[in-house]
Every structure is written in structure tokens, then in C-alpha cells.
Write a protein that binds this DNA or RNA. Structure first.
Lengths: 250, 250
DNA sequence: CATTAGATTTCGGCA
DNA sequence: TGCCGAAGTCTAATG
């Protein structure tokens, strides 16, 4: 992961770092003493104080005080940003259309600027089925195909973590991408990226998308890329609740 | 402001810094590669990836990916925390009662730990919503129509509270349903229920939906039920509009 | 402590 | 893009 941290930057440096983060579409965090103004669906003002500012790659903008779950001010994804500096004060303005609204921050002092470009391909599984599918496959690998033998989980690549890696009965390295629900092209693209990471090794690697079902587009993209699909239903119950490795208390 | 920043801390140091932040009731931020598990009102799992973790002084716990305004996982204020370390993996578990739920994070690598104790006494001043509309209408009833006279707010019916009730220039009882945003069919249905509650009295009662705008479906449903629509924008002014210095563009 | 209604709700799905 | 409905909604107010 690439990242950058700067403590107590001057205003001009703060501005440069913010701009740098924007150009890299990074995950940006500032700890600053600031004033805030919002105008759009409503109108609000927030006087000077120390807060955390977060700007995400998709244009989400959050300002957090040290209390409450919710941000005190925010702007949803697709916000466009402008920055300015005047009299050692840095300004960030996030503007959005539909609805038309703007969030302006007047930064008087910055204690910390940090941005990073991280790996995070995983999306939330609201019932945890994906993990259960992996458990199920490890217990009964023939569910994928006769002779398949998984070797590791959460295998790290530059593209993220491969769900399951193993070998087929002919010894070919086989990469599994698991989806607990009807899978679309995104799942196929993800699998493709994993394989591309392996192709550097000049070895033949099989890619199998494992899901209960896939869209027609996904099926076509799989074929185009010589990858495969195995239909597998996730276990329909969270059995033995609490045997997950995360349970470390008692 | 007191603060602390550490880059790439070892697991044991990460743990110590987290504990230190807890004891100081600081505003804690971590940038980490982690796995997440939630169990409570629902169940969820999130595989390994780089995220921002935030823990606030009031026990709020947020986990943000680099997309979407909302945290991917969270725990509201008053969450109690426990930490642990095992095999160079740091665990944070946030537990809450009423409802009983827990959020567990398995931290494999930490890129940045920072916590600070800041000054922030200011609270948000907000305007532009339903209550402000009601204030505005009471001050200037002709905004609804010439001769309208409001009599009461939050009038209780079996169907809930009517926002504003009054009489038109002909003495007809008039029920207002206020929406500060673009209103849909639900707002119309709600107004309809209020009127039905009045129809027991065998008197003619007008129903007016007051909002900046409504959907086409809402407009049709209003006509079908012989109810009306008055377009009104919520006030966009703060009571004590200070001369804020934030306007720097243009 | 339970219920209720509003929110700069956000978010996903579908027409 | 607009609209509808769900959400681990959150939050403040009220009984």
C-alpha cells in the first residue's frame, strides 16, 4: 500500500498534499482546526474546532467531530472539489449537482495530513455466506470438481486477496472467486485481475467463478477469457454460530 | 491540541497506542489492513482489505472503505471496547447492549495510528427543514393562500400528528401536511389518512400538501382525492446569521 | 426505557 | 435519471 503522512504542515504544504491526493484518487484524511459551511438541501454553520476530514476516491466528503456516529457535515459521492489558499488559510469546497449543494471548509491549522492508495476489493457480505462457502469447499473440495484440492485462503496478490487457491487433479493451479449471490461481470473482472497477476509466472492458471448463478454478461466474459463457472449454493444456515476465527473472547 | 502519530507500528505497539487512546478518551484513527465481523441486528463479514478505523470518545466506532459516504461497518455511541493480540494480529472488539451487538476487527497490518485530544466546543447550527417551514407559515400564513389562518400545530389524531391545522377565508377546516423536500405518494397517503379521521365529523375538510415540489404520482393521487398542493420552499436562513468569512469564491 | 417521526437521511434496484 | 422502499438506518424528542 502506498501512503503518505505529514505532521503539522504549513498551509501551502497542506494545499499541495490535498491536491496530490485528489490527482491520485487517494483516500484522504486531515486532522484540522476548521470552520464549516453547508448550503443546499438545508443550511448550516459550524464554528472553529478540531475535526477529522475525510475525502474518498468517489468524492464522498465527511467531517467528523469527536462525538456521534454520524458526521457533523458531509457531502455524498460524486462531489467535485476545489481548493484555495489565502492568508495562510486553506479552503476546500465540495460541490454537487442534483441536488445542488456545497460544503465549504476553512482550515486554520492542520495537525495531520495523510492519504493512501490501498487494496480493498472485498465488499460486505451481510450474512457472511461467502466465508461459509469457503468453509464448505475446504471440507468438501469435490463440490468444485472431482480431484480439486484447495491449498490456501486469502492468498495475497497485488490485486487483493484471492478467496481460495488450489490445484486440480492434473496439478494446474486453480484460482476460485466466491460469490454467495447471483454474480455479475464485476466478479469476472476481479477473477481476471487475479489471473493476470499470475500470468507473470508464465504458467497456466485456471480461474473459476463459484456462485449460485451468474448473469448472461458474466457468462460471456468468462468464456471470452477462458475462465469457468461452477454453480454452488451457499450453505443456507449459519451453523455453529461462533466458531469463526475472530471469536477470541472466551 | 495534543496528538500522536505513528507510522507502520508493530502489532504490539499498535495495541499499546490503542489502549493509550482509550484511556485518554481521545479521537482515534487507524489505517489498517483488516478483516471485519459484525453480529447483532444482522450478521456480516468483510474480507481482508485496507480501511480506515475511527473510534470516538463517546464510543462511536466506524470502519470506512474508500467508497460510499456511509461506513461499511460501525457501532453507535456507548460501545465498550476490548483489545487483544495473538500471533502478531491485533483484535478490537466493540460490544454494545440494547441492542446486543458486537463488531470485531482483526488487524493484520497497521500503516498509521493517530490519536488526538482536540478542542471542539461548537455545535452545528442548522436550518431549512420541516420545523422551519411551520415557523414560517405561522408568521406569514398568506404563503399558503390569502386568508388562511393557522390555529394549531402538532394536532393529535388517531393517525398521528397533523403538522398544521387552520381555517381558510371561507371558514373551512384546512389540514396542512408539510414536507421540506420533494414529496412522493407517501406524503399524500398520510394527508389522506388525516382527512379520513376528520370525515367522521361529517364536515368538509380541505387537505393541502405543502412542499417545494411533488412527484407526478403524488400529484395524481392528490387530484383523485380532491386534495391540493401548495409549492413552498423551506426557509434557508439561520436565526443569527453571522457574517461568515467563508465566501471566497466569486 | 420504548415509541415515533424526520433526515442535507444513504443506498440499491428497477423502470 | 427518477422514484420507491429498506436500513444493523441514526438522532432527538416525548411519554
Amino acid at each position: 500500500m502506498k501512503y503518505l503522512v505529514r505532521e503539522n504542515p504549513e498551509a501551502i504544504e497542506t494545499l499541495e498534499l490535498i491536491e496530490d491526493a485528489f490527482s491520485k484518487r487517494a483516500f484522504l484524511i486531515l486532522i484540522s482546526c476548521c470552520r464549516v459551511k453547508y448550503e443546499g438541501r438545508a443550511v448550516s454553520r459550524l464554528g472553529l474546532g478540531d475535526r477529522i476530514l475525510i475525502i474518498k476516491a468517489d468524492g464522498s466528503f465527511l467531517i467528523h467531530q469527536n462525538r456521534n456516529l454520524e458526521p457533523v457535515n458531509w457531502q455524498p459521492p460524486k462531489t467535485k472539489f476545489k481548493t484555495m489558499i489565502k492568508d495562510d488559510i486553506v479552503y476546500i469546497k465540495g460541490v454537487r449537482r442534483y441536488p445542488n449543494e456545497s460544503l465549504e471548509v476553512e482550515i486554520h491549522k492542520t495537525y495531520l495530513v495523510s492519504f493512501f492508495i490501498g487494496e480493498d476489493t472485498k465488499s460486505l457480505e451481510l450474512a457472511g455466506y461467502e466465508e461459509d462457502m469457503a468453509d464448505m469447499i475446504f471440507k468438501n473440495p469435490d463440490l468444485i470438481e472431482e480431484g480439486f484440492r484447495p491449498t490456501s485462503r486469502e492468498y495475497s496478490t497485488s490485486q487483493g486477496f484471492i478467496d481460495i487457491i488450489g490445484k486440480d487433479k492434473n496439478g494446474n493451479i486453480t484460482v476460485l472467486e466466491l460469490k454467495s449471490r447471483h454474480a455479475g461481470v464485476n466478479a469476472v473482472k476481479q477473477l481476471k485481475r487475479y489471473l493476470e497477476d499470475f500470468e507473470d509466472h508464465k504458467k497456466f492458471v485456471r480461474g473459476i467463478l463459484v456462485a449460485p448463478s451468474i448473469t448472461e454478461d458474466a457468462r460471456e466474459l468468462l468464456e471470452e477469457n477462458k475462465m469457468e463457472f461452477v454453480s454452488l449454493e451457499p450453505p443456507n444456515e449459519l451453523k455453529r454460530e461462533g466458531n469463526v476465527t475472530l471469536d477470541f473472547y472466551r
